[in-house]
Design a protein around this nucleic acid. Sequence first.
RNA 1: UGAGUAAAUUGAAUGAACGCAAACAGGGGCUAAAGCCUGUUUGAGGAAAGUCCGGGCUCCACAGGGCAGGGUGCUGGCUAAUGACCAGUGAGGGUGACCUCAAGGAUAGUGCCACAGAAAUGCAGACCGCCUAAGCUGUUCUUUUGGACAGCCGGUAAGGAUGGAACGGCGGGGUAAGAGCCCACCAGCAGCCAGGCGACUGGCUGGCUAGGUAAACCCCACUUGGAGCAAGACCGAAUAGAGAAAUGUUAGAGGUGGCCCGCCUCAUUUCCGGGUUAGGUCGCAGGACGUGCCUGGCAACAGGCAUGCUAGAUAGAUGUUCAUUUUCAACAGAACCCGGCUUAUAGGUUUGCUCGACUG
RNA 2: GCGGGUGUAGCUCAGUGGUAGAGCGUUGGCUUCCCAAGCCAGUUAUGUGGGUUCGAUUCCCAUCACCCGCU
Length: 116
Amino acid sequence: MLKKVYRLRKRRDFRRTYQKGKILKTRYFVLYWRPNGLKNYRIGFSVSKKLGSAVIRNRVKRQLREVCRRKAAAFVPGFDYIFIARFGIKETSPALLELEVAKAAAKPGLKTEVEK
RNA sequence: UGAGUAAAUUGAAUGAACGCAAACAGGGGCUAAAGCCUGUUUGAGGAAAGUCCGGGCUCCACAGGGCAGGGUGCUGGCUAAUGACCAGUGAGGGUGACCUCAAGGAUAGUGCCACAGAAAUGCAGACCGCCUAAGCUGUUCUUUUGGACAGCCGGUAAGGAUGGAACGGCGGGGUAAGAGCCCACCAGCAGCCAGGCGACUGGCUGGCUAGGUAAACCCCACUUGGAGCAAGACCGAAUAGAGAAAUGUUAGAGGUGGCCCGCCUCAUUUCCGGGUUAGGUCGCAGGACGUGCCUGGCAACAGGCAUGCUAGAUAGAUGUUCAUUUUCAACAGAACCCGGCUUAUAGGUUUGCUCGACUG
RNA sequence: GCGGGUGUAGCUCAGUGGUAGAGCGUUGGCUUCCCAAGCCAGUUAUGUGGGUUCGAUUCCCAUCACCCGCU
């Protein structure tokens, strides 16, 4: 689990990120990201009711959090991230998910370096 | 031992490492608090679910009156309260243990009872059948009284046929044929007596008979105000508006119920102080609480004593890896709280009782 | 957390206690040289489980699924 500082918590922050952020889609999740003007990164998670019951939704969220914690180094400071779980996430293995998350998390970093 | 029936209980465990949330203590820091670091402790359920009922709590009058509407509907008890629960009554099902039942009123009134059937509620109704006793007509026999046959006028609810249901059932007497017309028994109704707190049960007497449907309208009895913790209270930048007192109460509007009444507020003046929204703090977990024992009660439950404190978040906390055991483990995740009900659920354990078979 | 609604044929909808209907679809036939259109005939259903009633799509209870609103 991540500490509170590294989590995206406010409804406004979510709305702003959805409206003005960049999008990356994979089989397991959709990722929005956007610069936040802070020194650290923040990550939010969103799991829709369509994926299943409360137990299933909680499990999916925990898996995502655990993977993010292990790959914390991949996230770029100064950005907000939102992970939206998709249907395929229920069947995948944690190792595969870890790979995908690491790749996705590094993406904003690459772009800014190119722009620089 | 097989089949069944009624309940109770459990809902993988242990250790290590890395993490999350809350509380407490210390450190550091600061106007102060929080964030930060270290340590300790604690951290989802029997259904947390569905939201089908009931209550606490909060605001609207400390919830008021009337009408309308809703709910409940055998009796007694229990409870904070209920449509729940317990004990009983009645009806129905099962060989039995046991199970099921919204189970007041059809003599307050209204409606409906398709098709079939003669007739479906009006003390109604004659299709087939049964009968010609009384009355009338004809034929015929006879000395006559009168007899026989046919018909009319009729009588008849015993039998057949229709239907879920045909105006008590069955037997005997009776009769032209029949009929509670009369009688016995049974069902049902009314009254009285006895038992029971009561639902009701038993007995006696009476007059002979009253269709079903109220989960159709309705009547009767009891009961019910509305909204909901996103309730509500406080802090509070910007913006500008709220409160108190006095006066006024014609009209209209608002205060979350359908309508009426009632209650409160508005309008003006004076005083000075803070509505709504983003956000934050509280509400928020010590409670109709859990466990054990004792007492009362058939029981639900109540009382007493001892002991325990056992989640409290706000994008919303239980995960990952490894090891061991015995099978790799169902349904499933707290969001103000509690009592019930209902639904989902891999398996494991225990108890009472019934029926059958075998053995002694 | 709270409130409201709907389940009827493959699809869209009717149906206020007495044999469940319409349109589109679909199948077969007729018509045409062939197709379309047209005509005729058929096919398929009351979400599930109980109860009340002689009889339930309809009345009552429970349950399941779906949809909508407040926030």
